[in-house]
């Protein structure tokens, strides 16, 4: 075995060389658009797309920052993301716990009904959800943007699976020590499912940080807009901003999530994986 492996270790085979070159080329192709945006954002206005020797500048960032209330947009996105995540955690934990550990009549039917929401996408129901938000007088508010996503069938499903895999002996031990059902949930199930919470949180934050269509529909004042809606208005061709400045604004908007991703690459990818695999 060692004999047959040693030549390939010293000399990369044709297959390996092909793999390496193919992978690198595809990787370069895949980051190229982003690299171009960063490049353009650092070039003097008017020279954004050239490679001429005109040096680099941060003017585009300064101009972009001054042209729109980005700080408000950032704050709104942060509030939207936290509101949604906290709401999802609370509701999905309670429902997941019920489906995992309580025998109540109608449970199985109800579970299938809830799973249907995986296919009735909130994106598709924009018209009637808009009417609902208006009826609840939540138009142009953080709650209006987040509420339709809080009872997530996906979150309920994930947490139910996680709670079901907790050994029942742990619950019994906690009960003997005097924990009620809420105490058991808080002391036994929630800590045991911590990796699932982390994974779900990563996916939820990335999804809602990037969500656009629904926030566009239920907001109409600059004070309430999240980053994505702000960016879409900023970049609109009819507003006549030049490419370098739009690049700077785009890079600014994606920077926080991108930097977080570069730092926590492993956890992020693992998070997406755990949340995606049912």
């Amino acid at each position: 075995m060692t004999l047959s492996l040693s030549p390939s270790r010293r000399w990369p085979s044709a297959g390996q060389t092909f793999d390496t070159i193919g992978a690198w080329l595809l990787a370069l192709l895949w980051v190229a658009p982003l690299m171009f945006a960063i490049w353009a954002s650092l070039r003097p206005s008017g020279a954004a797309l050239g490679f001429g020797d005109v040096g680099f500048t941060l003017d585009n960032y300064r101009n972009a920052w001054n042209a729109a209330p980005w700080l408000t947009y950032f704050a709104n996105t942060l509030m939207l993301v936290s509101f949604t995540l906290v709401g999802q955690f609370v509701l999905c934990t309670l429902a997941g716990y019920a489906f995992a550990r309580f025998a109540f009549p109608g449970r199985d039917v109800l579970f299938v009904v809830i799973l249907m929401q995986l296919f009735i996408l909130p994106e598709v129901l924009i018209v009637e959800n808009y009417a609902m938000i208006a009826r609840l007088s939540l138009f142009d508010s953080i709650a209006g943007m987040g509420l339709p996503y809080i009872a997530s069938a996906f979150g309920i499903f994930l947490l139910r699976q996680a709670f079901k895999s907790v050994p029942i002996e742990l619950e019994e031990a906690a009960r003997i020590e005097g924990c009620g059902w809420l105490g058991v949930l808080w002391r036994v199930y929630v800590p045991a499912a911590r990796p699932v919470y982390l994974a779900y949180a990563l996916v939820s934050v990335a999804t809602h940080w990037n969500n656009f269509l629904w926030p566009l529909i239920v907001t109409n004042s600059p004070d309430r807009r999240p980053l994505t809606v702000g960016l879409s208005l900023f970049g609109a061709p009819e507003s006549g901003v030049d490419i370098a400045i739009v690049s700077a604004a785009t890079v600014m908007v994606i920077a926080p999530l991108l930097i977080a991703f570069l730092i926590f690459q492993r956890q992020f990818i693992q998070g997406f994986l755990r949340a995606g695999i049912k």
Binding site: L26, A27, L28, W30, V31, P33, L34, A206, W209, N210, N211, F212, L227, T228, L231, S232, G235, T250, V253, I254, L257, L258, F261, L262, Q265, F268, I269, F272
Partner: peptide, 13 residues
Amino acid sequence: GAFFTPTMLPMIA
């Protein structure tokens, strides 16, 4: 990282 990066961007960006 290069393959995964576009996933982190908003569609608008």
